[in-house]
Design a protein around this nucleic acid. Structure first.
Lengths: 101, 101
DNA sequence: TTACCGATATTGCTGGACGATATTATAGTA
DNA sequence: TACTATAATATCGTCCAGCAATATCGGTAA
């Protein structure tokens, strides 16, 4: 389905947004996205988190919660800047594509 | 750069939007996108137009203008529906990510 | 020490991204 | 009727992301 190409970026912006709001972990964000009608498979989610970390937008910390290992991610300063840039691009997209709606 | 992953979908929504507004052709839409600060290489643009056509969102017609061949694309009914769906998703994204801005 | 569980990590395949290059179709010129 | 120039489309090769399925990990409890 080609519409996946349209919206996968939206999912990534969601992830970054939540990582700015507070610490998130993989399974948690997957459930949050599902609440918004998005699905993301582990084979996409975890490599994406790793990539965002490798590029300096997220930082992670491992914690044990109820005997289960969780890797919490938070946005770095760079991550916050990327979210701000994303918001500007969204505003531009809205101005262009939503005109007269 | 990972932010390309964030915004390539935006570009595709732009393309669809312009194809709903009126006929477009490849080189034209590339210039239009450049005006908005986006770049798309021919190796991405043309396969994308083909894919959108193959999936029934665009239909094309070849015309000769000033001795140059142009392939004009217009959105089909399906394409219009996909744009409408895109607008709904954008609205959702705005509601989620732009809160308190 | 083992069985289990939630969570993360990885693998193999498919297909998109993209810069570079080739191809196409016509107009203009002689 | 060639030849050239030009603008646009099409394709090629390489790299890397998407993803479902599977494996692995870390810790608890029996």
């Amino acid at each position: 389905m080609i519409d996946r190409e349209f919206f996968l970026g939206f999912i990534k912006i969601h992830i970054l947004y939540h990582a700015v709001k507070g610490p998130i972990y993989g399974a948690d964000i997957a459930a949050e996205l599902a609440r918004h009608g998005y699905t993301i498979s582990p084979g996409t989610l975890y490599p994406t988190l790793h990539r965002l970390s490798r590029e300096g937008y997220l930082e992670s910390e491992t914690r044990v919660v109820e005997g289960k290992m969780r890797k919490y991610y938070r946005a770095t300063g760079e991550g916050k800047r990327l979210l701000a840039a994303s918001r500007r691009k969204i505003a531009e997209l809205v101005a262009e594509v939503m005109e007269g709606i």
